[in-house]
Amino acid sequence: MAQTKLGDNTVNTSGNLPPVGATAPDFSLAATDLKDVSLKEYAGKNVILNIFPSIDTRVCAMSVREFNKRATGVKNTVVLSVSKDLPFAHKRFCAAEGIENVVMLSDFRNKSFSNNYGTEMTDGGMAGLHARAIVVIDPSGKVKHTELVPVIGQEPNYDAAIEALG
């Protein structure tokens, strides 16, 4: 289990992010059309997992906007933004914001992502939602970079995520 902070309170997660150098665990997440999507579908690409509690919070929305901007300039890369929001909320947000360069995925249906990436908060006011984290995966499926953001209300280190791609 890892820890982050929600305000001044320490919050535990359900596990740990996969270690750098490990094969990234597969998952099944719901896309905005409610179809299941797995990591295998992005084999051969760089993948940035932008993991967050809810699209309806300021910092979460900012992270999706920022990765939407940055994703356009990185070849062979896809950004998968993952939360437990319903796909309808993801679709509404993207339509309202003009988000086109990020794939929004929901972990509302099963626990494969929560279990394999260890990001579910197990206590605190947002228990059951994902902590804010980044995982960068190379085209061979190996983890290149991880970040469990130390405070939920902070943005991730975008530069470190992009630099990890080489």
Rank of each mutant, 00 (worst) to 15 (best):
T23G: 10
K69T: 12
A127N: 03
P53K: 14
T13I: 01
G128F: 09
T119H: 11
P25N: 05
G125R: 12
L29N: 00
D56A: 15
V47P: 05
A160F: 08
N50F: 01
V82D: 00
Q3R: 12
D26C: 07
L29D: 02
G166M: 02
R132M: 02
P139N: 04
N115V: 12
T146L: 09
P25K: 00
L86Q: 12
T146H: 09
M126Y: 13
V11T: 03
L129T: 03
P150T: 01
V78Y: 00
G15P: 00
I162D: 02
P25L: 07
G141K: 01
A61P: 08
E100M: 10
L29E: 02
M126C: 04
C94T: 14
E147K: 12
D85K: 11
N110M: 04
Y117G: 05
D56P: 06
K111S: 13
V59G: 10
K75T: 09
G124E: 13
G124K: 08
D159V: 11
E100S: 14
T72P: 00
S63E: 15
S38P: 04
L86Y: 15
L17Q: 04
K69H: 09
T4Q: 02
N76H: 03
P87W: 12
G98P: 08
D138S: 05
I137G: 01
K144T: 14
I51F: 02
L129C: 00
D26Q: 06
A133F: 01
I162M: 14
A31K: 08
F108I: 11
V151K: 14
N50I: 01
L49E: 01
T146I: 13
N46H: 11
V82H: 05
D33P: 02
P19Q: 13
A127F: 03
G7H: 03
A22V: 07
I162V: 13
A96H: 14
K40A: 15
G44Y: 02
V135S: 03
H90D: 00
A127W: 04
K144L: 15
F108K: 03
F88P: 01
E147Y: 13
G118Y: 09
V47Q: 01
S38D: 03
V59P: 11
N110A: 04
T32W: 06
A22Q: 13
D123S: 09
A2L: 10
L80W: 07
G118I: 09
F67T: 01
R132L: 01
A160R: 13
R70C: 02
L86C: 05
